[in-house]
Computed example of a mutant assay.
Amino acid sequence: MDDYSAWVGRSETREDVATAAPVAGLAALLDHDVSPWVSGEVPPLGHWLYFLPTARQSVIGEDGHPCRDSTSLLPPVPLPRRMWAGSRIEFLSPIPVDAALTRVTTIDAIKPKRGTSGDLLFVTLRHDITADGVAAIREEQDIVFRESAPASPVPAPSPAGPAETEPADAVRSVLPDPVLLFRYSALTFNAHRIHYDRDYAEGVEGYAGLVVHGPLIATLLIDHALRAGFAPRAFRFRAEAPLIDGAPFDLCLTREGGGARLWARDVAGRITMRADLA
């Protein structure tokens, strides 16, 4: 692959306002009866509801993402498939509702690799967010670009290993149906077709169905922890396998010291995401 070292260090600054409407929409999506959130504040991971993509319709690619060129922050990688692989987030201070937000995004690293499925390119972005001028969020986000999918959908692998049957202190089941996925896409203005276009997800990108958004799973996991009484100072997650719609999956939590270990487990018992909360 090309040498992308010249892209490392590139940055962009965006501004927004932490309005209340997206927070209310997220509460509805998470089916809150009694809210575990602090009143008047944006909840943990709620910063993903702001700084939404605003690319014009004419520059949207086949996958639903904006096309990458020399004017975009991300490099024009010749690998068509893209996924959010994980993040490491520090909650530095609360974000009041209606606060003025500023986000500085910097490319921290670009690393090409060769995997069993072909070429991969890992891009690490650092997001520094202030609210009314006060440092609020520090996040490192990992994005991976991959080669085209095989000609036919890849079936989900069978569960294996003892971790998939590990007991948890708290378990909650969620049904990821197309309506849940659509509502989250709408909240985050996410046009990636793997989340709502079944023909595209299966026929073009080779998934076994609609793919549940990685940040939605992470949001459900941290919501699971908030319902259990945690007040996170830091959170990290890593996607391990695609989670497909149509069958319930489990949110699992085990207390460890003053924090928690969390994971999402699909209907076959396979772990699709792991997370840690401090």
Rank of each mutant, 00 (worst) to 15 (best):
S58P: 01
T105W: 03
E62Y: 08
H47L: 05
D31M: 13
R10L: 09
A20P: 05
L175C: 04
S158Y: 10
D223H: 15
F249G: 05
R88N: 10
H224P: 09
R126Q: 13
P150N: 09
H195W: 01
L73V: 14
E147A: 11
G25F: 09
E15F: 13
S93C: 04
P155H: 14
A234S: 15
P44L: 10
G133Y: 08
A85D: 00
T71D: 12
D3I: 10
F189N: 10
H213G: 07
G269T: 14
L277G: 14
L262N: 11
R138L: 07
A136R: 00
A149D: 09
A151P: 07
D63C: 03
R193C: 00
L175V: 09
S158D: 15
E140A: 08
T272G: 08
V42F: 03
P76A: 13
D31P: 04
S93H: 05
T219P: 06
V104W: 04
L187N: 02
S39N: 12
R146Y: 02
D69L: 10
L121R: 01
A131W: 04
S158W: 11
P75Y: 01
A20Q: 13
A260W: 10
E140N: 08
A27L: 09
V144T: 08
G86N: 00
Y196T: 04
R227N: 11
S58K: 09
Q141W: 04
R255V: 12
A231F: 06
P80G: 07
D128P: 02
P167W: 10
L243N: 04
P155E: 14
V38F: 04
R255Q: 10
S72C: 07
F145M: 00
P150L: 09
